[in-house]
Simulated assay, not measured.
Amino acid sequence: MIPFLDLKAQYATIGHDIEAAALRVLRSGRFVLGDEVATLEDNFAAYCGTRHAIAVNTGTSALHLALLAAGVKRGDEVITTPFTFIATAAAIRYIGARPVFVDIDPATFNIDPGRIEEAITPRTRAIVPVHLYGQMADMDAILAIAEKHGLAVIEDACQAHGAEYKGHRAGSMGISGCFSFYPGKNLGACGEGGMVVTNSDDHAKQIRMLRDWGQDRRYHHIVEGYNYRMDAIQGAILAVKLAQLENWIEARRTRARLYGQLLTGPTVDAPREAAGRRHVWHVFAVRTRDREQLQKMLAREGVETGLHYPVPVHLQPAFADLGYDVGSFPTAEAAADSVLSLPLYPELELSSVEKICDLIVQDAYVD
């Protein structure tokens, strides 16, 4: 069996350090925020090349607070992509704002900047590009549009820890960037976690208050806030893992290159790293004409696969009230119908990548 993801394999390499970090927190008696989380914030800000990093309990919370800090209010519109995990749009709705979707670039799966301006209205307040699968969106074009129209850019970098665009780290180019530390992410907690990074002192101050009941000091509540604080154990564990992140990224990139070299033939179209980008390969999603058949064949051979994502957000029943129909975003819908995610994680044996590619290439020539 080749699993789609093997968190036990990662734990085996750093388990002693993780256990020591968790035990240190347990012995300290400080279980929420505190020095462990502050250390993670300092290290993650330095890693991303930003002035501030504010730890929260989930990536969704990070998006929610970043939108609030940017001044998005009920009735406003926020432009984003329909081809993403539902949390991107859900965070917009938490505020009472409306997600306005724009179709994607078929080569990168990210929002197509050439379609953004036609979606802008007098109610538009922000653009949320999603750096899907670990590759950054076309930030130069997006930032130019935002500047022209006076809009905030909030990067959904929940799948893109360490990704780069022309030398700039994910999260560092917009007014803020948001990360998830869900266990399966390239940098994953042993539970839930998230982070907002920003170069704005004002935004950082506001987000720190918002995550902790809106207080600037204990029992002094300046704004209406939330309980979005990070647990100290997660902060300590993530600090251990952050020190390994670059090694893990390079291991992912090695395996992605091997996939790209070996996946030849008519069965699949392998993803590619765009010029000027550093793809960190959170997901290696191929396109295939007959996904069900390919997925079943790989399952019979003991290879687990995933679907990211089979239904675009605009066609989810939870968002039916937005009024979008089938055909509203044909490129995103075509991607949703054809993508299949193959196993990719740092500990995946190169021989397993070769086996998967052999199975796919051979299957292309079976009548």
Rank of each mutant, 00 (worst) to 15 (best):
A364N: 09
R27F: 00
L23C: 11
F179Q: 07
A170W: 01
Y324H: 12
I120D: 01
M230D: 00
H168A: 13
G214M: 06
T58G: 09
I145V: 10
A46G: 06
G177Q: 02
E354H: 06
K241A: 06
M230T: 03
P310L: 00
F83W: 02
A334M: 03
Y219K: 12
G188A: 02
Q244P: 02
F284R: 00
L67M: 07
A299Y: 12
A251C: 11
E292M: 08
A126I: 03
V102E: 00
A107Y: 15
D6K: 03
F101C: 10
A141D: 04
I222S: 02
H308P: 00
Y47E: 08
A62N: 15
H308D: 00
T58D: 07
I207M: 14
G15W: 13
A335F: 01
K148P: 10
I92K: 07
S180E: 07
S176F: 05
T58R: 14
W248Y: 14
G327N: 04
L262G: 04
W248C: 08
A189W: 05
A160M: 03
W281M: 04
V313C: 15
P266D: 11
A152S: 14
R123T: 01
R291N: 02
G260Q: 13
A141V: 01
N199G: 15
D337N: 09
A137G: 11
P3L: 12
V268I: 12
V366I: 15
A46T: 10
G177Y: 06
R253P: 00
N43F: 00
H308A: 01
Y182E: 15
L26K: 08
A45N: 08
A38G: 06
K241Q: 12
Q206I: 07
A137W: 03
K296V: 00
N110S: 12
R257M: 12
R98H: 07
D231F: 04
D6T: 07
D103L: 08
T254C: 10
A336D: 10
D290A: 08
S180N: 04
A119R: 12
A275R: 06
G235W: 09
